[in-house]
Write a protein that binds this DNA or RNA. Sequence first.
RNA 1: GGGCGCAUAGCUCAGUUGGUUAGAGCGCGUCCCUGAUAAGGACGAGGUCUGAAGUUCGACUCUUCAUGCGCCCA
Length: 1133
Amino acid sequence: MFRPVESSVSFPQLEQQIIEFWRQQGIYEKSLEARAAAPSFVFYEGPPTANGLPHPGHCLTRSIKDLFPRYRTMRGYRCDRKAGWDTHGLPVEVEVCKELGIHSKEEIESYGVEPFIQKCLESVFRYTQQWEQLTERLGFWIHLDEAYVTYHQSYVESVWWALKNLFDRGLLYRGHKIVWWWAQGGTALSSGEVGQGYREVADPSVYVRFPLVDPPGELRDTDLLVWTTTPWTLPSNQFAAVKPDLEYSVVRVEGESRKLIVASALVETIAAKLKKEFQVESTLTGLEMIGWRYRPPFDYYYKKQGQQTGRLRDGGKQHIAWRVVAAEFVTIDSGTGLVHQAPAFGEVDYDVLLAERARFEDAEGPSLICSVAADGKFTAETPQYQGRWVKDCDREIIRQLKSEGTLFHQEQYVHDYPFCWRAEEDPLIQYPRQSWFIRTSQFKDLMLANNARINWLPEHIREGRFGNFLETNVDWALSRERFWGTPLPIWVCEKTGYMEAVANYAELLAKPGVGGTEVWEAAKQSRPDLAEDLKIHKPYIDAVTYDSPKAAGARMRRVGDVIDCWFDSGAMPFAQWGYPHQPGSRERFRSQFPADFISEALDQTRGWFYSLLAISTLLFSEDEDQKQDDATTPAVAYPHPYRNCIVLGLMLGEDGQKMSKSKRNYREPTEIFDRYGADALRWYFFSNQPPWTSIRYSERAIKETIPEFLLRLWNVYSFLVIYANIDGFDPAAQIAGQVGQLTPDVLARAAGYRPLAERGELDRWIVSELNRTCAAAVKRMDAYDNFTACARLTEFLDALSNWYVRRSRDRFWSGQASADKADAYWTLYECMLTTCKLIAPFVPFVAEAMWQNMAVGDFGDRAAQSVHLCDYPQGEPAAIDETLSQRMATVREIVSLGRAARMDAKLKVRQPLARVEVVLVDPTHQSWLEDHAGLIREELNVKQVDFIQKAEQYISYTVLPDLKRLGPRLGRQLPAVRKYLASADAAALLAQMEKDGQIVLQLGGDRVTLDGEDLQVRLQAKEGWSAAQGRSSVVVLSTELTDALVQEGLARELVHAIQNQRKENNYEYTDRIAVGLVCDAPELCVAFEAFADYIRAETLTVEFGFAALPDAQAIELDIAGQKVGLYVCKATE
RNA sequence: GGGCGCAUAGCUCAGUUGGUUAGAGCGCGUCCCUGAUAAGGACGAGGUCUGAAGUUCGACUCUUCAUGCGCCCA
């Protein structure tokens, strides 16, 4: 016996019970144990940060991350799923600062680095509980209690190991990085923060003369005209940039003695600004100007270095600075076409400096000029402005330019400029900071080669967004001047500058003369609850110093920086195991590398997807030049560290806008779970669109999932259970011993179970559909295509519910036990058991609930304890009957066409009709269809079905060319053939084809021979018949009605009315009733009289008469336009 | 400003190497069923496939440009 199924199911409630069951029985663990010896399917969890609440986008990611491991587990792989948490980084610090009400680094330092990072640690796990609840509620099976955590000492040491490897190979170096700098706060801002702070402001806009030095004769007394909106950067000028292929003009300005050079395209614009006449004397290209020297507006540096030259790599010498250089970024959108370059205060300017420096021999080229200190104030190198905030000096600088005659023009310029989002009055400046870099650009080709082997879904990521990003790879700016992160493990000799990297804490402690650990020990003593892991964090680690091997008495001190937290997460393939320092980590790493599958959203392309690939390529590359292949850095064939990557689309809110808490344009996941359940959400994610399309989160669509799929499935399940219990269909009583996964061969052991071949066609058909669906699901899911797999599952459910069950109803209702009835039960039972397994990875809760009742509920512990411990059904080729599938599809189409014809003729299905005629395009299945006419008769309520072919009275033929065949063969002739066939007598052509097997067309000068395969015949219903045409057939309705048919139709109308009344009166199904009719129309009376037996039988009427019943209310009916009074009450006996 | 992607029914979305009639669900309309029943089902209306040009015998599909939207980077 099965447990009765509640008529109105609450999926959320059901899911809670299943979660409890999984937890208590350790089903996830059992699913892993069952695959202990199986080949592994490697999954990497991209670690989320738990310092914010999870939102619907995380649900999508976690659903996809659950789906494929579940699926692969059922397919026979062992898929360990280790959770992870990303814990470091600026976002964490920002959260803590908010909480403390402080902003700047200075404030953090005065608050105390020690309590600050302790706060960070607390903050990191603020929402862990919510994340863990969501993970479990969503049915995401992953080992949360074994999660890797990026701040843990073991994890940090793995990162250190990797960094030491890079350092020792010369791939870690120190350089400058131009950052958006909040000078007052002493902090660099991330691009996201900068983006938040743009405001429209008016800045001074100055046009400055750079007089040429030693120009060619005709350009004596000529100045470059340069434009800038940051006058304070002019003292740090190093170059003037032009675009080589741009045309420039030498112009003479009315009333001035010196000439100017500006971009030709801007001459008029600038002239208009000054309301002066400009006269063009000559033109030249940017290319010609390259190398020309000029005198900068301030001589703080020029005075010392102006004449300095350096040796070039190509030979020869050149002045190191104050020259015209080429730059592609120069535009004529604004300014003069000549761009002032202050490399210290502009990222592109800095690139120009690097490019220039690269042309010189080492240490011969230009160094960075920076007249501003980190606090945003001028240094002693610009004594005139020393100690003053740069922006405050703009006015004075302009005045000085004016007095020296180098200011050409000045105005206000309104543009967007970034301000600090935390201190709105503080404008940001671009500023150079010393930074550590990884030489990733040296590995560009290897990264591209690695990338080329990765299976990206969607595919365009490989060549597109990700490929392009790799193509333009620049060295990874690794270090951060922050507090809460993995400390950069490099110690520097305070005297000589000698540096070395340290791979772990033990190695550090073994250094000669090590000291400073007492800082941590003291902290630990005063707060014994401090996590041990903190000891390798700032500030404790900074206190640890040791003797320099290079200078007696000097100490090695750690550089102050921490690293980019993307390096942390990108190191997870090995760091999650504490590789290589933890015992056993080498084996774990080797067995779990590379990953078969990872998935995150599109925004991770340059984040995690990149950091994983870059670190892995740098460490584990097998290219000859880079090969290391030692004990800890094995050379591994591409791709690594991931083979398949689903790049999820971004999720938008209900209104198509970015999801935002304040806009409230989405429903919280927890509410979705409570209202509709996790399966509804999951099915919505999996079945609604391919995962990489950007998806608009829609509560309505999630809700609709329930009736569309879950409830429909539930109804079939409930149908089976109801009738199985009524009829005493009890599989457990018929099968002895262990039954395990209840596969078909186990079911076959049942006494009442007949082999498929002996069962009826409908049974064979649905089993064929079931196995086809299994095969398709496996094929699609192996290709990571959950969307199409879901479509196939939905299709099967439709066939099962709307055709198999509907067509089999009376088999389940029939009173006596029979072999056919048993077939119906076994068939539906098998379908439902297999469906449970098919849907288990997608909607694990519903699948489990049904399995628990249909399998475990009946068999107890003789059956597999959970559907998730079963193998995924692959589909049995022997059970698939393609012909039968096609035939049944044709029947379903004919029925559908018949209904369309009925609607068209306004003949409702209640009205029986004499016959339909079905004209088939293709007679292949005709005799089979004839044998199944009964099915069509019932569905269409007709007395007879005829299949015919020659039916010119109802239809006309159209002969069409098979374009796919003929297109490549005929090419240009095709339109003529089409035209000919369209106008030809199709019947005659077909007759000829039948006779000769081919048709020869004379088209102009060409002869074209067509055989039967080249033509397709289409049928068209002729006007005047109630007919409907489909692809395979035309269905013609005989609309002629005999008296008997009309009477039967009327009787069915009455039955319909009586049944409605039964329901209205809340009678039990078995209640017998009395019916009285008051009816004036003789034709109705005759009809009811004639079909009285039918009416009695259908409605369980025991007393039937033509008179009002005293105990019943009169119901007025309208049947065929006539009034009928209907009285219904329970029968007296 | 650069890169990538998207644009199909009122709404949310499919559309498999270019092929004759572009599909689904919801909503809407008409109807059916009433022993899965506070369910279920059928049928129908609704589309210049964003616009323009090109390639091709043939374009929703390929190319280019334009427009709008999104993301990433500047």
